[in-house]
Amino acid sequence: MDHDTLVAFSKSWGLFYLIAFAIGVCVYAFWPSNRKMFDDAKKNILDRDDTPWQ
């Protein structure tokens, strides 16, 4: 494998990887059924936390 092939591969597939990854993250973050889980998570840390749950 020579230098130019590697560079070309890096440049093109690096970009596709980035786009695919970004879409995946957005889908996850905005998936409707995840909303409740996120809301719970952000509120739950404010609860009392002096002992572990059994």
Binding site: C26, F30, K42, K43, I45
Partner: peptide, 27 residues
Amino acid sequence: YYYLPKRAGRPIFSYRLSILSFWGITF
């Protein structure tokens, strides 16, 4: 993301935003 909401007594403004910025930074 833990001590600021804790101290302020308010949940983080946007949980989704924190997820997006997490993956953005990691990537």
